[in-house]
């Protein structure tokens, strides 16, 4: 065996990466944003990290409707500033509903002030991405939320 031989450390990391690949299968997301452009940008990033299904909704009310027929959802990404039902109210509705309260929610929003971040986390958001964001930042926050290590 040459210097490239696998040692225990290599095996650990191989297992981890195989695990990550395995976990990345059949990932299903709900993206809630009133901007179709933003939904498409987010959906592209999610497909890059192995999303099988990305369901889109235009506001909180639409999000609740889509959830009823969506089946298993691994992560919800929601904007804050939306018509009809904003992202914070949507988050509170989710956390108050036994059927959805365990789905991790990432706020993807322009509301970047510390007080807004704290408000969302207090309301039950698992993670937070401030717009504008790079694809790498969004992907890493989703992976963090899913517990996937690279």
């Amino acid at each position: 065996m040459g210097s490239d031989a696998l040692n225990v450390g290599n095996l650990d990391s191989l297992e981890k990466s195989l695990g990550a690949v395995f976990e990345r299968k059949d990932l299903r997301f709900l993206v809630v944003d009133d901007s179709g452009t933003m939904r498409r940008i987010i959906a592209k990033c999610l497909k890059d990290i192995g999303a099988d299904t990305v369901i889109e909704a235009a506001d909180g009310i639409d999000g609740l409707v889509k959830l009823k027929t969506a089946g298993k959802i691994d992560v919800i990404l929601t904007d804050w500033n939306m018509p009809n039902m904003n992202g914070l109210d949507f988050l509170k509705k989710l956390k108050a509903d036994a059927a959805y309260k365990d789905i991790p929610v990432i706020m993807v929003t322009t509301e970047a002030e510390k007080s807004s971040v704290l408000e969302a986390i207090k309301a039950g958001a698992k993670n937070y991405v401030a717009k504008p964001f790079t694809a790498d930042v969004l992907k890493s926050r989703v992976e963090q939320t899913l517990g996937i290590s690279k």
Binding site: S35, T37, M38, N81, T109, T110, E111, A112, E113, A130, K131, P132
Partner: peptide, 11 residues
């Protein structure tokens, strides 16, 4: 969405 992000970032 651009103006939303610009205003939000400045906020």
């Amino acid at each position: 969405e651009m103006v939303n992000m610009i205003a939000g970032h400045a906020k």
